[in-house]
C-alpha cells in the first residue's frame, strides 16, 4: 500500500485507555494532505476513541500524534482547533438551545471575529442555502438532515485544514446521506483533508481514497479504498456487514 508522502496527521503507536480498559492498541494512521480517509469497524472497536484522541478529549497513554509534523498529543483541544482541526461530532451534537447562527459562531470560536468571518459565513451559506434560511432558528428544532448541515457548516467556520467526522450518515435518510457525502467530496475538492469514521462501509469506501479497518482497538487492515472494496474478506466482514447480493 502506498503511504502518503505528505502526511497532515499521523498516529504513531498510540495506546489509549479508559480506566483499565485498553481501547486503542498500538494504533498507527497516516493521513495525507488532501485525502479522504475512512476508518471502518464495528461499534466498540475504537473508532470514536480515535476521534477523541485526535481532538484531545482523551489523552493517549503512550505514542505520538502528529499534526503538520508537530506533536499535538499533549496539547489542549483549543490549541488543536486553532491549528486547524475541526470535528463533526457523532449525532451532530449542535448546541440545541442556540440559534443556527450562534452555532456557526461557536464553530469560529478560536478565530478573531474580524478575520474572514463574514467570508466563511458566506461560504457556508452558499454550500447550504437551507442553513441560511434557518439561521435564526433554534438548532434543537431542526430536522436531522438540517442539523447535519449545520454541524458541517460549524466545522467549516473554523477554516480547518483537517475535518474529523464521526458517523456523518448516522440517523439520516438516504436522500440526506447522498447530499452529505456530495458535500464532503466538495469540501475535500476545495482542499480540506477529511478523516471520517463510518459504519456505512460501502458508502464510506465509495468516496474515500484510503481506509483503515479497526477491530477491538487494533488496525487489522489498511489500503486504498479500491483495494479494500475488492478484498473478499472485507466484503464479508465489513461492507456494511451485509453482503452485496450475488457478489454484485
Amino acid at each position: 500500500m502506498s503511504e502518503p508522502t505528505d502526511p497532515i496527521l499521523e498516529f504513531q503507536a498510540v495506546n489509549t485507555y479508559y480506566g483499565d480498559l485498553h481501547v486503542l492498541k498500538n494504533v498507527c494512521y497516516t493521513i495525507g494532505r488532501g485525502e479522504i480517509v475512512s476508518l471502518l469497524g464495528g461499534n466498540a472497536s475504537g473508532k470514536s476513541t480515535t476521534m477523541k484522541t485526535i481532538m484531545g478529549v482523551v489523552r493517549p497513554a503512550s505514542g505520538r500524534v502528529l499534526f503538520d509534523g508537530a506533536e499535538i498529543q499533549d496539547m489542549p483541544t483549543s490549541e488543536r482547533v486553532r491549528r486547524g482541526i475541526a470535528p463533526v461530532l457523532e449525532a451532530r451534537r449542535l448546541f440545541p438551545r442556540m440559534t443556527v447562527y450562534e452555532n456557526l459562531e461557536m464553530g469560529a470560536y478560536t478565530r478573531p471575529k474580524g478575520a474572514g468571518f463574514a467570508q466563511d459565513l458566506e461560504r457556508v451559506y452558499t454550500l447550504f442555502p437551507r442553513v441560511q434560511e434557518r439561521r435564526g432558528q433554534i438548532a434543537g428544532t431542526l430536522s436531522g438532515g438540517e442539523q447535519q448541515m449545520v454541524a458541517i457548516g460549524r466545522a467549516l467556520m473554523a477554516r480547518p485544514r483537517l475535518i474529523c467526522m464521526d458517523e456523518p450518515s448516522m440517523g439520516l435518510s438516504p436522500l440526506y446521506v447522498e447530499q452529505v457525502f456530495d458535500i464532503i467530496r466538495h469540501i475535500n475538492a476545495q482542499g480540506t483533508t477529511i478523516f471520517m469514521v463510518e459504519q456505512n462501509a460501502s458508502m464510506a469506501l465509495s468516496i474515500a481514497h484510503r481506509a483503515y479497518v479497526l477491530q477491538t482497538g487494533q488496525v487489522v487492515l489498511s489500503g486504498t479504498a479500491k483495494d479494500l472494496r475488492e478484498n473478499p474478506a472485507i466484503r464479508e466482514a465489513y461492507l456494511g456487514e451485509l453482503q452485496v447480493p450475488g457478489a454484485a
Binding site: T77, L89, R93
Partner: peptide, 12 residues
C-alpha cells in the same frame, strides 16, 4: 448545553 462539543469547538 454540551460540554464536550463546546470543548471540541476550541472553548477552554
Amino acid at each position: 448545553q454540551d460540554p464536550e462539543a463546546a470543548r471540541m469547538m476550541g472553548v477552554e
